[in-house]
Simulated assay, not measured.
Amino acid sequence: MKYSTDEPELSNLSVKAKNSRLSTFLTRIALLVGAVPLGGYLLGQLVEQRWPGEISWSLTLLLLGLITGVISLGLWMKRDPGG
């Protein structure tokens, strides 16, 4: 009995998963809405340690990072997929 070769190999599936639009979209969301605000928060912590004051730099840079990430994600979603 011969096996059907219609099913893709496991290595081909992993390559397709890496190149799929959904994984690209989810990665982009994770980076822009998760990592950028986290980086802003950590930078704010550093600024607050070096130059303490009345302004909460952690919160300010966290919100700035979140706004920047959401705007960047929106622009990326509106772009032309062909170019």
Rank of each mutant, 00 (worst) to 15 (best):
K18S: 09
Y41M: 06
L26P: 07
T24S: 13
L66N: 00
T60N: 10
Q49R: 15
T5K: 10
G82H: 13
T60H: 00
I71M: 15
E54S: 12
M1Q: 11
S58Q: 10
E7P: 05
S11C: 03
L75F: 12
T60M: 11
S4C: 03
V15N: 08
Q49S: 11
L22F: 04
L32R: 07
V33L: 15
V70Y: 09
T27G: 09
L63F: 01
L62I: 00
L63P: 04
P52E: 10
R21L: 10
M1A: 11
A17C: 12
L10H: 12
L66F: 12
V33C: 15
V47K: 04
E54H: 03
L73A: 07
T24Y: 01
S23N: 09
D80E: 05
L63Q: 10
K2H: 13
W51S: 09
L13A: 02
W76R: 09
R28K: 05
G69V: 01
E48G: 06
L43M: 07
T60Q: 09
F25L: 11
G40S: 06
G69N: 08
D80I: 11
L73N: 02
L43V: 08
L42I: 09
L63S: 11
E54C: 00
F25K: 09
R28L: 12
E48P: 01
W51R: 11
E9L: 12
R50K: 13
I67E: 02
D80V: 07
D80G: 01
I55R: 00
R21C: 03
I55A: 08
M77G: 01
K16W: 13
V70Q: 07
K18E: 15
G40D: 05
S72H: 07
S20F: 03
S20Q: 04
E48H: 10
L13F: 06
A30G: 14
W57A: 10
I29T: 13
P81E: 13
T5N: 12
G83T: 12
I55K: 06
L63T: 06
